[in-house]
Design a protein around this nucleic acid. Structure first.
Lengths: 113, 113
DNA sequence: CATTTATATGTAGATTCTCTACCTATCATA
DNA sequence: TATGATAGGTAGAGAATCTACATATAAATG
């Protein structure tokens, strides 16, 4: 057999919520589409497993950062569409600056260590 | 009361092993010094708790990426000094490129989403 | 027509990592 | 004398992710 398939997966722990919220700033989307969106924009470097996705969406909803309702997809299937809330947007902003802050800190160690 | 003290802590989950290994490329160090080093180079953005540090060091040792032995510190205390191994260096290289790869992927989502 | 693949949502349980909260001990300083 | 810094550690909880499974429908393929 040939070389192993180029690892599709990998996900920096703790970034999934941020990625989902950012994705929902484009437009309301159902879970399956959110995962596809993230995978596509990351050129398939990031894999969003269902076992991570749906619990994450519940979490976000419980925190009031997204709301959801059942709707029909363009192809006539039923799906739960998620919408980011105002407080979700505020939280996204905070998560982004915290992420950047930590990233700079990590860089500080990795460059100068 | 005034605003909360500027959070000292924060640690991108999954990066601790990389930070420790990178720190040990400078020179063998004991645990306490590793934590201080990371905190200092990150300008106190990253906090390395003992409850994370020592289990991480055990992990790294179990995987053969570091070795350790008791020695005396310059100030005459006993401390366990950790040294990165050849396979530890190889692993560090892989962790770094994987980290960068994932970071680019996240950026792809965060910029274009 | 039958089967497989893609779309869509979810749950259970295990794993992994980190954190909080402890405990011990020595040395330096106030 | 007591407190803080140095040094190492553990137990248990909590959070997030992953694997594996279960369900259902629509579209594509044989």
């Amino acid at each position: 057999m040939g070389r192993a398939a180029p690892r599709k997966s990998e996900l920096l722990k703790g970034t999934l919520d941020m990625l989902i919220l950012k994705t929902l700033t484009v437009q309301p989307m159902h879970g399956y589409a959110i995962a596809q969106h993230i995978e596509r924009l990351s050129r398939d470097v990031l894999a969003v497993e269902q076992g991570s996705l749906y619990p994450a969406l519940e979490r976000l909803q419980k925190k009031g950062w997204v709301t959801s309702r059942w709707r029909e997809t363009p192809t006539g299937r039923r799906a739960r569409y998620y919408t980011i809330t105002a407080s979700g947007r505020r939280n996204l902003g905070q998560e982004i600056s915290s992420f950047e802050r930590v990233l700079l800190a990590i860089n500080g160690v990795m460059r100068r260590a």
